[in-house]
Write a protein that binds this DNA or RNA. Sequence first.
DNA 1: AATGAATGAGGATTCATTCAT
DNA 2: CATGAATGAATCCTCATTCAT
Lengths: 181, 181, 181, 181
Amino acid sequence: MATGHTDPQRRERILAATLDHIADEGVTGVSHRKIAARAGVPLGSMTYHFRGIDELLHEAFTGFAAHVAAVFERHLDGAGSAEQACEAVTDLIHALSDGPQRDLILTHELYTLAARRPEYRELTRMWMSRSRQLLERYFDAETARQLDALIEGLALHRALDTTPHGRRLTREAIKRITTTA
Amino acid sequence: MATGHTDPQRRERILAATLDHIADEGVTGVSHRKIAARAGVPLGSMTYHFRGIDELLHEAFTGFAAHVAAVFERHLDGAGSAEQACEAVTDLIHALSDGPQRDLILTHELYTLAARRPEYRELTRMWMSRSRQLLERYFDAETARQLDALIEGLALHRALDTTPHGRRLTREAIKRITTTA
Amino acid sequence: MATGHTDPQRRERILAATLDHIADEGVTGVSHRKIAARAGVPLGSMTYHFRGIDELLHEAFTGFAAHVAAVFERHLDGAGSAEQACEAVTDLIHALSDGPQRDLILTHELYTLAARRPEYRELTRMWMSRSRQLLERYFDAETARQLDALIEGLALHRALDTTPHGRRLTREAIKRITTTA
Amino acid sequence: MATGHTDPQRRERILAATLDHIADEGVTGVSHRKIAARAGVPLGSMTYHFRGIDELLHEAFTGFAAHVAAVFERHLDGAGSAEQACEAVTDLIHALSDGPQRDLILTHELYTLAARRPEYRELTRMWMSRSRQLLERYFDAETARQLDALIEGLALHRALDTTPHGRRLTREAIKRITTTA
DNA sequence: AATGAATGAGGATTCATTCAT
DNA sequence: CATGAATGAATCCTCATTCAT
């Protein structure tokens, strides 16, 4: 009825609604109907813009991966030294694991998909390699790799813990992993 | 037909089939029908033994958490020194991230649930505290915590990586994180 | 709500409704919804009793093939001689091509399926061989085969014709085809 | 993009694609999208050139009826005597029922439509009357009618049979039906 | 105690058609 | 003149759950 013909934002709105929904209810809860309702678009619009649920999911997570990479970048961009990089990484870990946890939840959902399906592993690989690249500005390649894994582990444990560890422990762990004999 | 009376293995078989199915197709794909078919039990048996899908899932993951804790334990049980513990942890990380990845997939599925739902966080907390306890046999509490997170991060990155890092890097990271100033 | 638990006639009623619907609107128009409505059963009942539309269709036509074979049989059963058989065949052709044409329409629908799909060809083959068998009571095998084809053609043309030919022509054609040099 | 102006072949290409599609998947499977894809024309083109699916179908079968009539004609055109006409008819029957069966499948689809809908019966009537006309060049009207029906029946049975009868039987049947007392 | 039958709600997807451009 | 965007209705099918037995 109210056909404004073209609505170029529509695809983006659907993708945003998809990520919101996944954050709220998980990939499990994604359905055309629910996403359409959340995005305020008619049901038929879903399969018009995306070939199916899979394409929708993959595209949504592609956008999310870009977003996470940007967060990583934003944190590290200011650092002028390895010292400052350590501080930036500490901030990053706590930013990820405090707060609304939206990003962390989405990260888990993505990892879960990636664990089983190669096309999602592509996404996580790209973002892992991006974060290592950024860390290599300040650390040697091997250290960067270790630190990258540590970041992951600390953020994850902090998020699932009832009594999450404080900044001091985070800082100490980072210091140890970046201290080369 | 009438197999006598009760089949005490049936509950267990259903739970095992549930984990198998989750490993294969994810929590998303779990349904009474599919699990019943996989376990070779009649459909009606499902709601007889479990109040609903939620109970089934939670109980299955409870069993899985116990299994993972046991794996952890088995690896560390032999270690007589911090040195040996480091080696045992290296083995553990590579055992988790090589192989059929079944445990890793299930772990992610559980984390994904835990990220949103407290009743699953209970499970991950118990297992995290168990692993820390085990590590505290060899390391101080703070180091144990850091090491625990590192284990998580290394295993995860190794599993998702196309060119997973070797034992040398794992060992080096463990050495650094356990080296107190 | 009104769950009388078991309704053993249900399958049969669905199959009957399916044939009715095909006679009215064609195989093209068959859908779970429409058949369910016509049979007075809930929608969910359809896929419970039949694995899918294909199974439903195939089973319905299996029943129809049996019915047609019975009609053929009923017409020929009384005949005591080749002479009487010719008369019976004439009756049969006109019975098929006059009247409500329900059987003829269903026959066409079945042929259309059979032309493309072997599993339906099975059905038509069985019924063709049954009719030949019956004719072989009165005629030699080769004549039976020719006559069988003629019956088909005459019934078909009569049904599609605006000025269908009369019994006289039918009788004459039968006489010619059964007259061996 | 702008291919000049109009594409006069487009209508024809769409109709040809429609028949191809019906041969492959049946009238049931016809949809604007599928035909457009097969014909290589934009979706919007479909409703531009044809008022709807019904018009598309009817026009496609009109073309097919003309084609079948032409096949009939081509076979009989060379015959200079009743004798030769019999041979030509034998050829025709075997040409129809051997080979790729495309024409036979389309014929059945058309008959199925014609059995229920008068506007398609128009088509079959025209083609039946054309074939009778052609046969009347060699046979009296009544014989032509009988022979026409026999052709139909023999072709049909041959096509659906697993062990189709040979030319000898075809010839014999034709001989009998054309032998007037 | 155990289960097969049953069903309404909701799943993804396909569709003919309309319409602004 | 031609068409891509858009959508509500309808498609088949799967599902968790209830319940009579």
